[in-house]
Each structure stands twice: as C-alpha cells, then as structure tokens.
Design a binder for these strands. Structure first.
Length: 813
RNA sequence: GGGCGAGUGGUGGAAUGGCAUACACGCGACACUUAAAAUGUCGUCAGCUUCGGCUGAUGAGGGUUCGACUCCCUCCUCGCCCACCA
C-alpha cells in the first residue's frame, strides 16, 4: 500500500498555489468579503518560531474555511521590520540593520509558504520599504498639521542600555518593583527631554465610547478602559500668594475635610511661589533628593515623605479655609494638575501622610461604622457648614453647582492616559518629515494636501550614517550625518529632525495598506477601503491590548475625522491568542532549553501534521504547554485518511456511515465557525475511526471529507483531491481549496426515535427509546414500563415528572 | 493593594443547566513478529463488588435548582494585566 510521504507531497504543491495565486483577494468582487487579519511579525530570530505558528495557523484554517464557503477572503501578510529587533540583529551579526530584509525576511516568507499559509502574497508589505514609509510619514504629517503632534519637554522613560526613550506602555515593573523596558527587561529611569508626542488623550473619550460596539472580549475592553482611566470629578480653585492654583478631585464632596495641600516636587508652580517660602533650603533639598530617588526607593519606602512650605498657605476660594502646603512625592506631576487637596479622613494616602506629619484630620462624611478614622465610602455630611445632614452622593452634585456658580471651580474629567511619546533616539526607524528652522520653529517638509509637494519631498529616506549604533549622550545616530541634517528649505537654513519614529508607527495603519498595497498616489484608495473595511476578524497577542491595539484605534479614529477612512473603527472583532509554553510548562526560552522549532517538525512530520498538532492542542486563546505527542496522533490521522483513497468505490455507503458522515460535517462546520479547531479535529478522528473499519468507501463521502479536511491539512488534501478526481494537469480552478464547502443533510441525522436517560430523583437510572418530539405522557409511559425503573419505583408514589423534550425525563418519588 | 481569568483522570483537554471524563497522549495486557519497531484488539477516574452492579469524585465549603463542572456567595491556589492616577 502506498504510504503517506509528507515531504514529497508538500514539495509538490507548495509552489503551485503561489504561482497561480490560489489565495487571491479580489478588490470589488461580487462575493461578500471577509478580511481576516493576524498581526504581522517583526522578524527577529533566524526562523519562524512556534509563537508565530500558533498565531497564524488558526486564522489560516478559518480563512480557508470562509473561502470555501463562498467568501472573497483577504488573508494578507507583511513585515514589521523597523525597530529594535532588526538593530539588535545587526549589532550581533555585524552589518547594517537593513540586512534583515535580505537575510531574515525571505526565510520567514519561505517558512510561511512551507507551513501552507494561504496568503495572497501580491499584497505583501514591509514597513521599511520607502514606498510604504512614505505614507507613514504622510500620515504623521496629518497629525502634525492638526496640532496633534507636538515637540515638547516631557518627563520620559529613558533606557540607558537601549539609549532611547520609551513610551509609558513600553515600561513594566519587575518583581522587585523596578521599572524595566518591556522588550528586554533593561532598567529605565525618568528624564526630562524634548520629545515628539502624539496627543492621544484628546481621543480618550472617542476611544472609550468606540469600545461599546466592538466585538472584543470583555477582558480587552476592560483593560483598555482602565488604561484610558477616565475619572469624573471637579476642579477646585485655590490661591497661594496671589497665584491661582486648581486641583482635580473625584471627591469634591469631601472638600470641608481638607487639612493640607500636596504639590508634586516637579511642579513648576513651586518656582513661582518660591520667594515666599521661609524654609527655602529644606524645600530645595527635598526636591533634589526626590528627583534622584528611583521609583524602587519610593516603592520600598512605603512611608510617604514631604516637606511643609513654611510661611505660606493655600486658600480655598469656595470655603475660605487656609491650609498648610506640603511638597510630597506621592503627588504625581503627570496626573490631574500635579496638586492635590488632601483630605486625610477620606483618603488612604492623605491619611498616612497626615498621621506621619501630625496634620489635623477632619471627618466630613459619616458612614455606618462610626468608629473608623479613615472612611472611603458614602454617607451623611458632617462638619460641612450648611450642608450638614445631606447625603454625600447628593452633596457631590450640589457642590459642583456651587463651585460653578461662584466661578471658583467646575465639573472636570481626568484621564490616566498620557501623551504618547513618539520619538526614539535610534537609527532604524522612519525619519520624521520635519525641519527645525533657525528661529526655533518646526515646519513640515511638505503640505499633505499638495500632491506635487508630496511627490517631490516624500519619502524622507533614511540616510546612511557612519555608525548606526545608539549614542551615549541621547542624540540620535542620524545626527552624525551632517550632510543630511543640514538642508536649505525655501531659501532658509534648516536642520532635519533626527529622531526616528517608534516601532509602532508602521503597524498603526498596515491593515489599511493591505487593501491597496501598491498605490503611489495615496496611502490607500478610498473605494478599496470602503470595500474591505473594517477588518472582520483580528487575531493577535495579548501583549498588544494597551499598545498596538489602542494606538491603531487612535490613528484610525483620527483618520476617520479627517475623512481619510470610511469606518470609525479599524477592527470589528478581536481575539487574543494564548501563549505556548515549553513541554515542561515553563515559558519558552533559550535559557531553559525548552524552545520548539516548528520547521524541525515540518521536516520530520510535515506541515500538515504541524498545523493540525497546533490546532489540536487546545483553544486559540488559552495558554498551554507544547505536547510532542499530539503531533504523532494527528500524523496518524492524516496517514489513515491518505491510505483510504485506495478503498474508494461508487457503491453507496451504509446508513451508519452516511449518518456518521453527516454528523461529522454538521459538528465540524459549527466548530470551525466558533474557532474550536481542537474539537473539530476530534470530530474528524471519530469519523475516520469509524470509516477505516470499512473495506469499501463511497467516493462522494470521501470527497466530502477531503474538502472538510483541506483547511487543516492543505497539502495532503490537495494531493488526494487531484488524484481521486483524475486531474492529470494542474489547473488553479481544480484546487481543493477553491471548492465549495460540503453540505450536510440534516434529515439523515434526525431519526424517528431518540434515546434519553431516565432519572429518579435526579440520578440517572436507565435509558429509554422514545419517538422524536414525544410528549410528556408518551415519555412517562415508556419510562414507567421500563423493567429497571419499575423495580426501583416498587410501590413508592410518583410525586411529579420533569420532562425536557428529546433530552431527559426525571421522576420524583 | 486593585482588575481580569483559570482550577476536571498520570498528561493535553471535552462537556457552559440535562448520561462528567469525548478526542488524544501515556500506561497495561494480548495478537502479529525470531526479536524490536510499526500496526491491531481490549483495558485504563477512585473505592467497594456476590462481577449484575453499587458508591464517591470536576480546588475547599455553603447556596439556588427536579437536576450544577456549568449560576450565586465565602475561602484557597495558580496565571496574566495594572499599580501612590487624588
């Protein structure tokens, strides 16, 4: 018997599909469209790793399924090739970062082809291609023109090891509370630097409201909501030495409990009032000390510190009270106004500070538990002048009205989300299309609405530099190429911006470019965007929930407001993939020696087996260890299927086989729709276990199965399909992957009778056969006639019967 | 400290209010074989059993229900995310 030889089969079909572009996505096709997107890789290692295989296999199976169900499917792929991975690769191996495009990407692409991913490679994109980043620059200029990109002195996270700034989202805490970089876990510190920022907070409200209508898992919506961090409250005005100072609070109802004011050490307000302070030295010393204090120290010293600004007070303009002022580093500069009204009786942080420095504590809300000194909840107002006795919820609204009427405060909303630091002092990124003029102003290199200028000035190509490695003084490597930096612009001397954009820039809009990847006139044609958008299903990694996924929603919403894209949201539906752990249950890592190289499995067992094995392990969104054994199981399945082709006949199939076939198809169809690929494969196994016992297999049933099998095992299925149909010469339209998904006959599955369990007092005691859709009386009669049930009931009295049609009957005694 | 999620055989998992443990892996016995591999057949949650079955079990405890892995409450453990956000 001809045995299953995966390498021969896979070699045979791989190129044929791509030569004829079997997986072509056709613009404006009459068929309904489906845009299936999986996050494109940033190539780093030498070959496609198993994390990629995890991420792409299920979306590929799904998009193949949709194609066979009559959809015009786009499943595109590209390369997110700017950024640190490419630079680090170059530093390690010597040579230029651009060699990632020649050394690594072709290999990645070959790996993907060998894995059988049904990609329309005519739409391939690469973020480092000047024809691509020309439009990244153009889109950035749109933000600049609208005032949403700003060059400003900002407290930023600086990573000494990487020699660059990082965005808030790229900084994590390690186990000991140290701030580290998200990428490689290098230490980071706060620094004040002039940086380009994108004003994402201006879109906070839209980003928040947009979530409502998206088919995202609740966990992602919650994570984004928390990241945006909307708080409603009030701004309340104070006066210090003639300076008006506003604070933000979510608890204006506690205003009569204020006993001091807290100011962040970095707050420029301190300079303004500094001359009035009596203890200037102590204050300066504290500010300097806290500047050098690492976040680790602040975390470790759970106790809060601060220094009173002696000789001055803050006067609340509404209630007229004057309170002492403390500079304290538990007050954050970059939230609210960098100043707080401290109410120790009703805030934990203020409470512990007040206790330490012996500051008065005034309770203004009484809850049920009257004994506690610190009370966070709601209750009845006390010690609050004419408002005593009011409910705090009501007073909260009333006080804001009063503030607004008196003109000493207002209703206010605050967001945790900060300006997005958008520049990096690294070489391998998109150059900013901006110029610094001698008078200190910054201008765009062209007007985005002037096609002639755009054509002439964009892209600003990344120049060669003598040394692209990061510098120790924080200047950009591009600074070293003076010929490039110094430019004459409209007859004036100018210097180019030498920072580059972060890795995220290219990925913020790549899904738009797939719709029209070769357009030279604009980033993507509006009509094509109208056809393809929004992305119907977006698969990716959980690590991007508050980064890429939020950033690109921001870009998209902005572009929508500029009337450049037709939809309000980029992605209608999202699923985060789980992690694949090493076989030992630990995170895959070279240092543990538990990494899995998918290409080794492709060599040894074949791509079909590798694909199915990944699907069979478990649900897409779960995290679980790699299991070497499952690949043998699925290979056996494929091999069984392959060998069955020698048993096909035109003889009609038995009733049992016909039923099993239709049941398998019904279940497989709904399971793929629900993306439950693991249980779908179980259905295949159940069916094949039955079928392999037969000596003859009906041809139509076998053909139907092969079509259902094709999304999972595209190579073996194509090989079998071509052979059993007797196709001598390859023709694209005869590919199994362009056939109609097999239909099942529901009538075959619906027997006249059904088997249901009989329970006595909720415990299963017997099984009976009753007519389908029988009524309760019929079912009860059959159950009571059952010998075993009869014996168990004996002379006990039947109290009641619970009957669920075609499911169960429960007799209560 | 806060948020989210998960806990089911030796292992990956299935069942999301109706026969818990599907489908696999592993393991055991047997068959084929000089032998092994491969393949096939049977068995495989635990305890008891007169071999017909009976009983218990889905992290622990409680609740709702005729009926709970599934819904609710309390607790424990693990994972992920966030963390002085006024």
């Amino acid at each position: 018997m001809e045995s299953y030889d995966h390498s021969k089969i896979e070699e045979k079909w791989k190129d044929k599909w791509f030569e004829d572009n079997v997986y072509e996505a056709i613009d404006f096709s009459d068929k309904p469209k489906k845009y299936i997107l999986a996050e494109f890789p940033y190539p780093s290692g030498k070959a496609l790793h198993v994390g990629h295989a995890m991420r792409y296999t299920v979306p590929d199976v799904y998009s193949r399924f949709l194609r066979m169900n009559g959809y015009n499917v786009m499943f595109p792929m590209g390369w997110d090739a700017f950024g640190l991975p490419a630079e680090n690769y170059a530093i390690k191996t010597g040579g230029h970062p651009s060699k990632i495009n020649t050394d690594i990407i072709p290999h990645y692409k070959d790996c993907m082809m060998r894995m059988g991913y049904g990609v329309d490679w005519n739409r391939e994109i690469n973020t480092t291609d000047p024809n691509y980043y020309k439009w990244t620059q153009w889109l950035f200029l749109k933000f600049f023109e609208q005032g949403l990109a700003q060059y400003k002195e900002t407290p930023v996270w600086w990573c000494e090891k990487l020699k660059t700034v990082l965005a808030d989202e790229e900084v994590l805490n390690d186990k000991d509370g140290n701030k580290i970089s998200e990428r490689d876990g290098n230490p980071v510190e706060k620094k004040m630097l002039k940086q380009w920022v994108l004003k994402i907070p201006q879109y906070a409200e839209k980003l928040l409201r947009g979530l409502k209508d998206l088919d995202f898992p609740e966990a992602i919506k919650i994570a984004q909501t928390n990241w945006i961090g909307k708080s409603e409250g009030a701004e309340i005005d104070f006066e210090i030495e003639g300076e008006k100072v506003s604070i933000f609070t979510t608890r204006p109802d506690t205003i009569y409990g204020i006993t001091f004011m807290g100011i962040a050490p970095e707050n420029p307000l301190i300079t303004k009032i500094f001359e009035h302070i009596k203890n200037k030295d102590a204050v300066s010393e504290y500010i300097n000390k806290s500047k050098n204090k690492s976040d680790l120290e602040k975390q470790m010293l759970k106790e809060k510190t601060g220094v009173e600004l002696k000789g001055i007070t803050a006067k609340c303009l509404l209630i007229g009270r004057e309170v002492p002022i403390y500079v304290a580093d538990y007050v954050l500069m970059d939230y609210g106004t960098g100043v707080v009204m401290a109410v120790p009786a009703h805030d934990e942080r203020d409470f512990s500070f007040a206790k330490k420095y012996g500051i008065e504590i005034i309770k203004v809300i009484e809850g049920n538990d009257k004994k506690t000194d610190l009370y966070i909840g709601e209750g009845i107002m006390i010690n609050s002048d004419k408002y005593n006795g009011m409910k705090s919820e009501d007073f909260k609204l009333k006080i804001v009205e009063d503030l607004e009427r008196e003109g000493v405060g207002k209703k206010a909303v605050s967001y945790k989300i900060r300006d997005w630091v958008f520049s990096r002092q690294r070489y391998w990124g998109e150059p900013f299309p901006l110029l610094h003029l001698e008078d200190g102003s910054v201008v765009a290199i062209c007007d985005t609405n002037n096609p002639k200028q755009v054509k002439e000035m964009l892209p600003v190509t990344l120049p060669d530099v003598p040394d692209y490695s990061p510098t120790s003084d924080g200047s950009s490597p591009l600074d070293k190429n003076k010929e490039w930096v110094n430019i004459e612009f409209k007859g004036r001397k100018a210097k180019r911006e030498t920072d580059t954009m972060p890795n995220w820039a290219g990925s913020c809009w790549y899904y738009l470019r797939y719709c029209d990847p070769k357009n030279d006139e604009t980033f993507a044609d509006m009509e094509k965007l109208k056809y393809w958008l929004p992305v119907d299903k977006y698969f990716g990694g959980a690590e991007h929930t508050t980064m890429h996924l939020l950033y690109s929603r921001f870009w998209h919403k902005f572009l929508y407001d500029q009337k450049l894209v037709p939809t309000e949201e980029p992605y209608q539906w999202r699923l985060n993939g789980g992690l694949l752990l090493g076989a030992d249950g630990r995170k895959m890592s070279k240092s543990y020696g538990n990494t899995v190289e998918p290409m080794e499995y492709v060599d040894q067992y074949g791509a079909d087996s590798t694909r199915m094995s990944i699907c069979f392990l478990g649900p897409y969104e779960d995290t679980y260890p790699w299991n070497t054994n499952s690949i043998k199981a699925v290979r056996k399945l494929i091999s069984n299927v392959y060998q069955m082709k020698n048993k096909i006949t035109n003889d009609p199939a038995s009733k049992e086989i016909t039923k099993a076939y239709n049941l398998m198809l019904k279940n497989a169809t709904s399971m793929i729709e629900a993306l439950k690929m693991n249980t779908c494969i179980s259905e295949f196994m159940i069916f094949i276990n039955i079928l392999k016992k037969e000596t003859k297999i009906n041809k139509e049933i076998y053909k139907g199965f092969i079509k259902a099998f094709a999304p999972f095992a595209p190579f073996a299925s194509e090989d079998i399909w071509q052979e059993i149909n007797g196709y001598r010469k390859w023709k694209k339209e005869n590919s199994v992957h362009l056939q109609q998904w097999p239909k099942f006959d529901i009538n075959v599955l619906e027997e006249d009778t059904v088997l249901i369990p009989v329970q006595i007092n909720g415990r299963v005691k017997a099984e009976i056969e009753i007519t389908r859709d029988a009524d309760e009386n019929g079912a009860k009669k059959t159950a009571l006639n059952n010998e075993k049930i009869k014996g168990l009931i004996g002379d006990k009295k039947l109290l009641s019967v619970i009957y669920v049609k075609n499911r169960i009957i429960n007799l209560l005694l």
